[in-house]
């Protein structure tokens, strides 16, 4: 278990931890936008930059790295608030504010770094997508990969293939839920759900009549887990009721 220093505080963490884990363990906050616990780090937003020096480097030699995906090592020194780190984060946020001038999440972060207005040319036709890639990664993570990023450079966008309702989408809403700026539109009701232009019919709990899950999602989960479909179409309320009944029976027996 390597021991390292974050802003002067000594912490010991697992050898497969990242610098972000170490900073958290040391009680030091590092801002992140594209990181999500449980998803493989991606290193795209660049907000989590920190200064890092390996044990065997010269004392004053530091490298700028992203905390979310950099592995820890014995004897490392990490500094999360040097002038150049703050300045780099400021550039990142200033740039994101130009892309998404009306997005509250970005406005808040920018303000935290003293930016009220972008220094750059604001996007004439803004939306709220900050291109953090969380939606596509969560979709990959559950084994669906219905959406992906298209186009290079500034024109990058998140989209289903050919901008058509994605055939592989199971309507689980994972992308919409993970999106830090809530910019993936969807509709869901007791009967129907719609996301990425694709419509789904909801499976309803046979007992309570509540909509629980889309048929496609239940099939996907059943197939991957080997658990029968009926498990997925039972609502939480139903499950609790079942459990309560079991307890009642137990009491009677007593």
């Amino acid at each position: 278990m390597p021991t390292l220093k974050v802003n002067g505080r000594r912490v010991t963490v697992d050898s497969d931890a990242t610098l972000l884990d170490a900073a958290r363990a040391a009680g030091v906050e590092v801002p992140t936008l594209c990181q999500f616990d449980g998803l493989e780090p991606w290193g795209g937003c660049r907000l989590c930059v920190v200064d890092m020096s390996q044990a065997n480097w010269d004392d004053d030699w530091f490298k700028v790295v992203t905390a979310c995906n950099h592995p820890v090592d014995e004897g490392m020194t990490v500094i999360t608030d040097s002038d150049r780190i703050i300045e780099t984060r400021r550039v990142v946020l200033d740039l994101l504010l130009a892309r998404c001038p009306d997005t509250p999440l970005i406005q808040q972060w920018a303000l935290e770094y003293g930016i009220e207005q972008t220094s750059y040319t604001p996007n004439p036709d803004p939306d709220d997508c900050i291109l953090c890639g969380l939606c596509t990664r969560v979709c990959d993570h559950i084994g669906v990969s219905a959406i992906s990023s298209i186009n290079r450079g500034w024109g990058r966008e998140i989209a289903p293939p050919f901008n058509q309702p994605p055939p592989d989408c199971i309507g689980c809403l994972a992308c919409a839920e993970i999106c830090p700026t809530d910019c993936i539109p969807f509709e869901t009701s007791n009967v129907r759900r719609k996301i990425w232009g694709k419509e789904f019919e909801m499976l309803r709990d046979p007992k309570t009549g509540e909509a629980v899950i889309t048929k496609e999602q239940a099939e996907h989960f059943a197939e991957r887990s080997g658990v029968p479909m009926t498990y997925f179409e039972t609502s939480d309320r139903s499950k609790r009721r079942e459990m309560a009944k079991t307890f009642e029976k137990l009491q009677v027996v007593k």
Binding site: G44, L47, T88, G153, W154, R156
Partner: peptide, 21 residues
Amino acid sequence: LEEESCGKCTPCREGLKQMLH
């Protein structure tokens, strides 16, 4: 370079665009 930036990371994707502005 702006044409060729893959657009994965913020400083390159947004920075080149703004530099050109």
